[in-house]
Simulated scan of single mutants.
Amino acid sequence: MWFFFSILTALAWGGADLFYKKGSDSNDKYSHLKIVVIVGLVMGIHATGYMLYKGIYFHPFDMVKYLPVSFFYIASMTIGYVGLRYLELSISSPVQNSSGAITAILLFIFFKQDLDWVHILGVVIITVGVIGIAIVEKQEESKVMRLNNVQLDKKYQLGFMAVMFPIIYALLDGAGTFADGIYLDELKLMSEDTALLAYEYTFFICAVVAFIYLKGVKKVQFNVFKEPNKACAAILETTGQFFYVYAMSAYAIIAAPLIASYSIFSVILSRIFLKEKLTPKHYFVIAVVMIGIIVLGVADADEL
Rank of each mutant, 00 (worst) to 15 (best):
F3V: 08
F3W: 14
F4M: 13
I7P: 12
I7A: 12
L8K: 07
T9H: 05
T9L: 08
A10L: 04
G23Q: 01
D28A: 10
I35E: 11
M43R: 13
I45F: 12
H46Q: 11
T48V: 14
G49I: 12
M51V: 08
P60I: 04
P60H: 07
P60R: 03
Y66I: 12
S70C: 08
Y81D: 09
Y81E: 06
S98G: 09
F111Q: 12
K112P: 05
H119A: 14
G122K: 10
V123P: 12
I125K: 08
V128F: 11
K143S: 07
M145L: 10
R146T: 00
L147D: 07
N148C: 04
L152I: 06
K154W: 07
Y156S: 02
I168W: 02
A175V: 06
I182G: 01
D193I: 06
L197M: 09
T202H: 03
I205D: 07
A207D: 06
Y213K: 11
N229A: 05
C232F: 14
I235M: 14
F243G: 06
Y244L: 14
V245E: 11
V245S: 01
S261G: 09
F265N: 00
R271A: 13
T279D: 02
V285G: 00
I286Y: 00
G292I: 08
